[in-house]
Design a protein around this nucleic acid. Structure first.
Lengths: 142, 142
DNA sequence: GCTTGAACCTACAGTGGCTGTAGCTCGTAT
DNA sequence: ATACGAGCTACAGCCACTGTAGGTTCAAGC
């Protein structure tokens, strides 16, 4: 039986985070010592490891909840598991695309500035003036 | 003189967001109509446009505050402006790198799964078992 | 001038995923 | 017996908003 601090160290989690997971129902309420301290077994260790690993892969706690539920019914088709993972992959790809566009525009903006004083700084000019921006968020017809 | 809703439309901002910016001191307290409603002039319009445009480029409100302060002293060197923008660019690049690594691992995981039932699902196996993961398990997150 | 209803007002709660703090109690080594 | 690290609960704070409730003001149409 592990104390919460030991479980935390084993899984690379903070103690407060484990209690938070319990609070939102992602981790079960564990047994307690006589004095009221949480005590964990191997099942809880596995579950927390699953959660942390999924978090490292960027899954939301909501998705992780779903994956945990699915893994409790081994006879079901794994299409749903696949769907959750695919959806997440698409979201990651969308975020990459957005950040890439951002990166290009930032680089362009920074590269254009040859001024030495704020009064002529290209960076501030670009930020001030929407027309100088390549993105078309509020141009007519976009 | 513009009402808050008009300002919101002009800048692509939500009304609540404008009030939020005022609350945290990013936008000044504007004049009021006789009945107590906010009324904005062209200066405020420009300032909000600057803020929104900077947000679109991913700058934090803290950085935007700094940029706004800097742009108020036109005689100063624009090195600091440059530094703020460079720092942000590096952060964006770091996030892209992390997401790219994530994408690769997700793809690999999804691509490996040939099972049809949850019991044999590779995706869940990878999530369960740290050893199958290429990434270091306890580096700082996000 | 009066009525309507959209737009405005304040104040506060909620989002996600934790993190930190205050002020206690518990467990264990010496 | 005592010290002290580790645990406990309860709550506030982070970022950048977003949404809600319940009331007031403004402008257009009659």
């Amino acid at each position: 039986m592990l104390a919460i601090g030991t479980l935390a160290k084993r899984t690379g989690t903070k103690v407060q985070t484990i209690r938070y997971y319990e609070q939102i129902g992602l981790m079960p309420e564990p047994g307690r010592s006589e004095g009221g301290q949480r005590r964990y077994g191997p099942l809880e260790l596995d579950r927390l490891a699953f959660i942390r690993h999924s978090r490292q892969l960027g899954f939301s706690l909501e998705s992780i909840r779903e994956l945990l539920d699915l893994s409790d019914s081994p006879e079901r088709s794994c299409a749903q598991v696949d769907a959750v993972a695919q959806k997440h992959l698409h979201e990651v790809e969308a975020r990459i695309a957005r950040l890439e566009a951002l990166r290009v525009e930032l680089k362009r903006m920074i590269g254009e500035c040859r001024a030495d004083r704020v009064a002529n700084c290209r960076i501030l000019e670009v930020l001030r003036d929407h027309e100088e921006c390549l993105s078309d968020h509020d141009r007519p017809g976009s």
